[in-house]
Amino acid sequence: MSNWVKTILFLVGSALLTHWIPSSFFRNLDTMVHEFGHAVVTLALSGKVMYIELYADHSGVTYSSISKSWSIIPVSLAGYMTASIFAWFLFSAYAKGKQRLGLQVMIAISALSLVLFVRNGFGIMFLVGFMALTIIVLALTPNWLRDFYYLLLAFLCLEESVFGPSSLILYAWQNSRSAGDATNLAMHTGIPAIVWAIGFTLFALWCAKQGVQAFLGRSKGARSSSRQSGAAAYRD
């Protein structure tokens, strides 16, 4: 089975599984990372981030000002691309057995977002609640529960990182002015919003493929180690 087929199956499977689990609250993690990406690139290009708002419907917005018009292009690119890379990072960390690092990175991004950027009521509530729960899981729970929590977040980020930009294709098709970041890019480059939406989706799928490969590589390695351990015990 090709890696692309495996990726699509993982995405469909994660969408089904995560909708059976009460996971609405945690879906805001992907939104937080998306908006954090906008904010960091804005600051890197000497812009000013006024504030970020996160909403209960898993949407968000970053209010910022930039001094150079061309800066809107990398800033607009940053949101979906950061979310896609973050999902890849979570699975790569899991493949290396570094779930604690992954959770610590989530806490760090949440803390920075809370202190520097997020100002609306729901956004603050989400960040405080998410950080508190993640710290408890990291510090007090057994490994199996920590791993379950980590994988739940990783699969949610994987799903959201792909289905988020793919929905832009539909929005851009119906109304090119309602496609968020793709619309901003279209206005400043002359390239249609639907092209940018497709580009975001293809990049997200590529990152998802890398993440799935890392996840499956760890699972395969674990099974191989188990078989080798069993053989050694038999010879003894």
Rank of each mutant, 00 (worst) to 15 (best):
residue 194 I to D: 10
residue 214 A to Q: 02
residue 199 G to K: 09
residue 211 G to S: 12
residue 221 G to H: 08
residue 198 I to P: 03
residue 192 P to H: 12
residue 190 G to E: 13
residue 223 R to L: 02
residue 192 P to I: 08
residue 195 V to M: 12
residue 193 A to I: 09
residue 222 A to R: 05
residue 221 G to N: 15
residue 220 K to E: 06
residue 223 R to Y: 03
residue 197 A to P: 05
residue 206 W to D: 13
residue 215 F to R: 00
residue 224 S to I: 15
residue 206 W to Q: 10
residue 193 A to R: 09
residue 193 A to M: 14
residue 208 A to Q: 06
residue 199 G to L: 15
residue 208 A to D: 07
residue 212 V to K: 00
residue 198 I to T: 07
residue 199 G to Q: 09
residue 200 F to T: 01
residue 190 G to Q: 12
residue 208 A to E: 06
residue 198 I to K: 11
residue 218 R to G: 01
residue 209 K to D: 06
residue 198 I to G: 06
residue 196 W to A: 15
residue 220 K to I: 06
residue 208 A to C: 08
residue 189 T to K: 15
residue 224 S to M: 10
residue 189 T to N: 15
residue 214 A to F: 03
residue 197 A to K: 09
residue 191 I to Y: 09
residue 221 G to W: 08
residue 190 G to I: 11
residue 223 R to T: 01
residue 206 W to G: 08
residue 221 G to I: 05
residue 195 V to Q: 10
residue 189 T to H: 12
residue 206 W to P: 04
residue 209 K to H: 06
residue 188 H to T: 13
residue 200 F to E: 02
residue 194 I to E: 10
residue 216 L to G: 02
residue 210 Q to W: 07
residue 197 A to L: 13
residue 206 W to Y: 10
residue 211 G to C: 04
residue 219 S to K: 09
residue 224 S to D: 15
residue 217 G to I: 01
residue 189 T to Y: 15
residue 219 S to F: 03
residue 221 G to S: 13
residue 189 T to Q: 12
residue 221 G to M: 12
residue 218 R to L: 01
residue 211 G to P: 05
residue 210 Q to C: 07
residue 204 A to T: 03
residue 209 K to I: 02
residue 203 F to P: 05
residue 192 P to V: 08
residue 204 A to M: 08
residue 200 F to Y: 14
residue 199 G to S: 14
residue 196 W to N: 07
residue 190 G to H: 13
residue 205 L to F: 00
residue 191 I to D: 07
residue 212 V to M: 07
residue 212 V to N: 00
residue 201 T to R: 08
residue 206 W to R: 12
residue 221 G to D: 13
residue 217 G to N: 06
residue 217 G to F: 03
residue 216 L to W: 02
residue 210 Q to E: 10
residue 197 A to S: 14
residue 221 G to P: 05
residue 189 T to I: 11
residue 202 L to S: 10
residue 196 W to Y: 11
residue 202 L to C: 14
residue 215 F to P: 02
residue 203 F to S: 12
residue 222 A to L: 14
residue 222 A to Y: 13
residue 219 S to Y: 02
residue 194 I to P: 04
residue 211 G to W: 01
residue 222 A to N: 11
residue 189 T to D: 14
residue 216 L to P: 05
residue 205 L to R: 01
residue 188 H to F: 11
residue 210 Q to P: 01
residue 191 I to H: 11
residue 195 V to P: 03
residue 202 L to H: 10
residue 213 Q to T: 09
residue 202 L to K: 10
residue 216 L to H: 00
residue 219 S to Q: 13
residue 202 L to Q: 08
residue 220 K to L: 03
residue 203 F to G: 03
residue 200 F to P: 01
residue 223 R to A: 04
residue 222 A to V: 07
residue 222 A to F: 08
residue 204 A to V: 02
residue 194 I to A: 06
residue 193 A to E: 08
residue 205 L to C: 06
